[in-house]
């Protein structure tokens, strides 16, 4: 295994804990599921059309659901939003990214379950910072 996750040991970590954490990080990153997810993100980054679709849909979503959105605006723009949603749903790059992300999340939950069962505490909830967002 390489050493890509072995920089900057936090002060409160023992060497053993840092090594064990780095090993886990490396094996997760090199698992088939996470590699598929990472690859799908890279393909998406290189696909400007797919990115534009997502960006336009997100921007329109914000405007449609804004408190000050008028009924006329909603009536005029909702068909376009639906169209964008359909295009997103049928875009192979976005479909793959979405599916790969779902599988990655399920995999991380399985790993967390394994750790949590042994610890007797929900490990994932301990790792969560209060201000964390997706």
């Amino acid at each position: 295994m390489d050493r890509e996750f072995r920089n900057n040991k936090p002060d409160m970590f023992t060497v053993e804990l840092f090594d064990a954490t780095s090993d886990l990080a490396e094996s997760l990153a090199h698992s088939e599921v996470i590699m598929r997810f990472t690859n799908s993100n890279q393909v998406l980054i290189n696909d400007q059309d797919a990115q534009r679709l997502v960006q336009e849909a997100n921007e329109l979503h914000q405007k449609l659901y804004a408190k000050d959105a008028s009924r006329d605006f909603m009536r005029e723009n909702f068909p376009r939003y639906r169209e964008l949603q359909n295009q997103i749903a049928s875009n192979p790059v976005l479909q793959e990214q979405s599916e790969a992300q779902e599988m990655a999340i399920n995999f991380l939950r399985e790993v967390n379950q394994e750790i949590s069962q042994l610890l007797g505490i929900d490990f994932g909830s301990l790792t969560r910072r209060p201000d964390a967002t997706c």
Binding site: F37, Q101, A104, N112
Partner: peptide, 16 residues
């Protein structure tokens, strides 16, 4: 969690 999140490209705690 920060180390694991960096490795997988997802927030580990939120994903779980």
């Amino acid at each position: 969690g920060d180390i694991l999140s960096d490795a997988v490209g997802l927030n580990f705690g939120l994903a779980c």
